[in-house]
Amino acid sequence: MKVIFLQDVKGKGKKGEIKNVPDGYARNFLFKKGLAVEATPANLKELE
Rank of each mutant, 00 (worst) to 15 (best):
K15S: 07
G13I: 04
V37D: 02
L6N: 02
M1Y: 07
I4R: 05
E46G: 12
K12Q: 15
V37E: 06
K10G: 08
I18E: 03
N28E: 12
K45G: 09
N28M: 12
M1F: 07
E17W: 04
V21N: 00
E17P: 00
L35A: 03
I4E: 02
T40D: 06
L35W: 13
Q7M: 13
T40I: 06
K32Q: 10
K2N: 11
K45D: 09
Y25F: 11
L47M: 12
L35G: 00
V37H: 04
E48S: 13
L44H: 06
L6R: 05
E38F: 05
P22T: 09
K12S: 13
A42Y: 09
K15A: 10
D23H: 13
L6D: 01
Q7D: 07
E46I: 14
K32H: 08
A42W: 08
K14L: 12
K33I: 09
G16H: 08
I18K: 03
N43V: 12
I4T: 02
R27D: 03
L47Q: 09
D23S: 15
V3G: 00
L47N: 08
K19V: 11
T40K: 05
G13Q: 02
A36Q: 00
E46R: 14
K32S: 09
K45V: 10
L35H: 03
K14R: 13
K14H: 10
A36Y: 00
E46D: 13
K10N: 10
V3T: 01
K10V: 11
K10S: 11
E17I: 03
E46T: 12
G13Y: 14
A42M: 09
G13N: 02
G24K: 11
E46N: 12
V21A: 03
Q7N: 08
G11I: 02
L30R: 01
M1I: 15
P41S: 12
M1Q: 06
K33T: 09
T40E: 05
G11A: 04
E38D: 04
E17N: 05
A26Y: 09
V21T: 02
G11H: 08
G34P: 01
R27K: 12
L44K: 05
F5I: 01
P41W: 13
N28Y: 14
A42P: 07
E46P: 07
K19N: 04
A36D: 00
A39T: 02
K10P: 15
K33R: 14
T40Y: 06
N20A: 11
I4Y: 10
K45A: 14
G34T: 03
E17D: 13
F31D: 02
D8G: 05
N28V: 07
E17H: 05
G16K: 02
P22I: 07
M1D: 02
V9I: 09
V3E: 00
Q7V: 15
G34K: 11
K2D: 10
K19T: 08
Q7W: 10
F5S: 00
A39S: 05
T40Q: 04
E46S: 12
K45P: 06
L35E: 01
K15G: 04
T40R: 05
V37R: 08
F31Q: 02
G34S: 08
G13W: 13
A42F: 09
K15E: 05
A26S: 04
L47W: 14
K14F: 13
G11T: 05
D8E: 08
K19R: 12
K10M: 12
K10I: 11
L47F: 14
N43R: 10
Y25N: 04
E48K: 09
V37I: 14
K10R: 13
F31T: 03
R27S: 04
Y25H: 04
E38A: 11
F29Y: 15
G13L: 02
K2M: 15
N43Y: 09
M1E: 02
D8W: 09
G16I: 00
M1H: 04
V9F: 04
K15P: 04
A36P: 01
E38N: 05
A42I: 10
